[in-house]
Amino acid sequence: CGGLMKSPNGTFKSPGHPRNYDNNLDCVWTITVDPGERVFLSFFNFHLEVANDCKYDNVKVVNDSQGDSVVELGTWCGTNIPALFTSTNNTISVLFHSDRSDVFPGFLAKWSIENCGGLITTGQSGTIKSPGYPDNYATNLDCVWVINLHPRQRVHLSFVNFVLEDDSDCDYDNLKVQDGDGRGDSAVDLGTWCGSDAPPPLKSTNSTLTITFHSDYSEVFAGFFATWFTER
């Protein structure tokens, strides 16, 4: 229950997830990456006991600062998925508490270093690329980019270069694009791609697109380079 994680990316979850967690838990996960890097943290499948002030079961995220001081980024419960976080330094911690009564399925969370995924909330255009591009990406990556802009804007996404491991079902290395926030149940899958057949130009129906890139433990390739822009 909890632990110290030092890898550049990974996942952690409440004990038992997707089954219900136990009562009377106090778990602390601390993610520390190399100095100079920052941590991108996102939550999925979030379901805790609900309370107006989250005094029963809750998740708290803190940004570890220099020395002994910490900055609390928020406390969550119920089914409201926590915000997307980017740490201000190389360490961030997640604290999970459950009380003596009701239990629920809990949560799944993913983290990566900042150049493997990120939250994009400003700008009219930009680029997204696999880590290391145009050199080969690494194994065992799970990167999530969320483009979340002004509510009246729509996001256009186009892939300039695209080379991943090929597989008929895209089970090994793959890229998935979702219309909406892919952390919740409301996002619509626009497709999953692998090999050298690049996704077609894509457009969101609202202000948010989610791009998820996964690589497995074996073969690696040059990856992808994509551009995005917005329109009203």
Rank of each mutant, 00 (worst) to 15 (best):
S101K: 07
N136Y: 04
P105R: 02
T86P: 00
G16K: 06
V144D: 00
N45F: 06
T122E: 06
G180K: 00
F44S: 06
N136D: 12
D167S: 15
D102V: 15
A109E: 07
P134E: 04
D102S: 13
T208P: 06
E219L: 15
D53S: 11
N136T: 07
T127S: 11
N174L: 01
L209A: 08
L157D: 00
N63G: 08
W228G: 05
R183D: 02
R154C: 03
N23I: 05
A138D: 12
P199N: 00
P82L: 11
V61T: 08
W76T: 01
H17M: 02
D166L: 09
T121F: 06
G16I: 03
S14E: 02
C27R: 10
E231A: 03
V188S: 12
S112V: 10
T11R: 03
Q66F: 13
N90Q: 05
D102M: 13
T227A: 01
D68E: 15
V177S: 00
T79W: 06
V50P: 03
S98M: 03
L149Y: 02
L164C: 04
V146D: 03
D64V: 14
D169C: 03
F229A: 14
T30S: 04
A83Y: 15
L202A: 00
N89F: 15
R100T: 13
D189S: 13
A83F: 14
E49G: 08
V59D: 06
A187T: 05
D22W: 12
L25C: 10
L95S: 11
F107N: 03
S101N: 09
V33D: 10
N90K: 04
D171I: 12
P134D: 02
K203H: 05
L84H: 15
V146E: 01
T32V: 14
D22H: 09
H150G: 11
F159Q: 04
F107R: 00
P200S: 15
D167I: 09
T230R: 06
S204M: 10
V188I: 09
N174R: 07
W145F: 05
L141P: 08
P199Q: 05
G36V: 13
